[in-house]
Design a protein around this nucleic acid. Structure first.
Lengths: 337, 337
DNA sequence: GGGGGTGTCGAAAACGATTAAGTTCTTACA
DNA sequence: TGTAAGAACTTAATCGTTTTCGACACCCCC
């Protein structure tokens, strides 16, 4: 590997001069600087990120925290998309992305210690149990963090607009003439709570009564549980005319159940998903769903984290709401026509 | 941050002693060593990976190379699963995982330089254009690499057993009594070539003639093109009795087309996917498909790379074939009953 | 000509760890 | 008693950068 020392020898100047020339510091003569730069290029010089990090105390490296157990984090298209845009934006701004986990080799450590150990300048936290004490410890530490889809006090977070999304969905369905809407929701998380609250509020705003039995629990990303919930809804004396699913993928469970009972979408039952993943756009009938703008979320998360890293003085915690948009498919029947 | 120096002061010994005690080197008295370890623990000491990497020349960090453009890399469940198990295994062995890309900040560099810059001990390469000169340069460099689903000369690679997979599929379909099998294949890659070759060979082994028009090109992970190919196959004067799709997700396109033409699966047409992703298991009828063992592939890739990093002397390039297994669903009709 | 300013450059000390090569001190043995 | 071996520990160099102080040289101006 070619180092500063090699270049300094080749050029007949000191290491300090080479360093300053390559970093564009003002106190090197233009001629010398150009010469040094050309030699560096010729020799194929590459700064050593490790040495730099050691000296500067900042690694230009951010950590990313995803759940590891069920691996449902990465395989969920929503998160995969977020991760991807996060990575692209971080790299654009000169930062690399490293995974953070609990254990590393023989050492068992928590997230905070792992991030410290790797000298991460900051960490993006997504798709984890936000009640986990280890997560809380990391968030409350001096390391800059940005959380996704969950807000901590006095920390920056990027939130998908679940309230607005749910509202738009209900409005859309209402305008299509539906008055009996069922909602199969995911497991109890802050996202679910927001969607539920927004659902109730929107229904109330349209003067729709929501029978208790129209609200069914299921799991995210789990067609089986959504299928069961669908079956229960279909067995009700007074069936809903439209069913909201926890997410697009879970809807597949409902789709199967409806088909099995000989019901067709949307003629016998209207359905709506959530997420707007690719699958929702290729199913027939095309699924009406609310697209979460994962690309923007990842990009903003990276940008906000790096902003915080580079300007700690002027930093203030922010809650950024990323709005999505309704994708109208053919899965909601227009009851007024 | 608490450093070796802090501990040495606290204990009244030299830094060297502390370092050796914590690393378990033999020339420190047991009593002293224990004392130092207890103090280190009490003070919450954490080694500084950066300093360590600088001194030792190895970062205990491996790079991972995925395509970034279409972001189809990460959102494909197969790769997401590979990435996840790769990460888990690497961490188990004491290595962190960092993404490698072409550009980083203002610097535009190739993959090789990026890996060098970050002091990666090795790189796992997946889902890229293996003809890309930058990829070739990295593979041919002194940095240990492992490629996934593509083999370079004298380098280690982990391959999904596409030959065996295709063979099993054809055998299975043949035994169900099918004699007219169509194959919609993905874009031209080494994986596709292997599957095609294996398909022809297996068909030949069973004395099945494959009309040229039964072989249709489409794209991976793209239901639209597979849907079109399906339509073409259905328009043939002599229809196949079974269609093989490039992957499970693409099959959705075929599913739509079949449904639209009023054909039911498997009564009017049998279908088979590839990959064995979650989706294939929740569709009804359940899709018969070949499950690629992505978990093992990621795990092996990490293990082999790290083995190569830690024992460069005894290392020899390996081609590891990871076999999968047929998942029998309800999408292939038994023509003999 | 002396003082002050400015423009270039170099010496050397960090950053936090590892480790080769000493330095003690104890013990053992001829 | 002399010395050799070994155990336990220290000193100091090193990894590749960055950066703080100077050190010079040169010019300007009073």
């Amino acid at each position: 590997m070619v180092t500063l020392k090699d270049i300094s020898k080749e050029c007949g100047v000191s290491q300090a001069t080479v360093s300053k020339a390559l970093n564009g510091l003002p106190d090197i003569g233009e001629e010398t600087a150009n010469y040094i730069r050309s030699v560096a290029k010729r020799m194929g010089y590459l700064p050593n990120a490790t040495a730099r990090a050691l000296k500067l105390g900042s690694s230009h490296n951010i950590g990313i925290l995803f759940v590891d157990k069920t691996c449902s984090g990465l395989t969920h298209e929503y998160f995969a998309e977020i991760l991807n845009s996060l990575k692209v934006e971080a790299e654009r701004l000169g930062y690399d992305v490293t995974f953070i986990s609990k254990d590393i080799g023989k050492f068992s450590m928590d997230y905070y210690r792992h991030a410290k150990y790797r000298n991460c300048d900051g960490v993006v936290i997504a798709s984890v149990d936000f009640k986990d004490p280890d997560v809380v410890r990391l968030v409350e530490s001096e390391i800059p963090t940005v959380t996704l889809d969950y807000a901590f006090d006095s920390r920056t977070s990027v939130l998908s607009d679940n309230v607005g999304g749910m509202q738009e969905i209900v409005k859309h369905i209402y305008e299509k003439g539906h008055r009996r809407i069922a909602f199969i929701h995911g497991e109890d998380t802050s996202v679910t709570q927001k969607r539920l609250a927004s659902f109730f509020k929107a229904c109330a705003a349209f003067d729709m009564h929501v029978p208790e039995e129209y609200i069914r629990p299921a799991l995210y990303h789990d067609p089986r549980s959504s299928g069961l919930a669908t079956r229960e809804l279909l067995a009700l004396p007074e069936r809903p005319t439209c069913i909201l699913y926890p997410d697009d993928f879970s809807f597949v469970g409902g789709m199967n159940e409806l088909e099995q009972q000989g019901l067709s979408i949307p003629d016998d039952m209207s359905v709506v998903g959530y997420d707007g993943i690719l699958l929702s756009q290729v199913l027939r009938p095309k699924l009406t769903t609310f697209r979460q703008d994962a690309e923007t979320m990842g990009r903003k998360a990276a940008a906000l984290l790096i902003e915080q890293i580079e300007n700690p003085k002027s930093w203030l915690p922010q809650l950024v709401n990323v709005s999505g948009n309704l994708l109208e498919g053919d899965s909601v029947k227009d009851l007024k026509s």
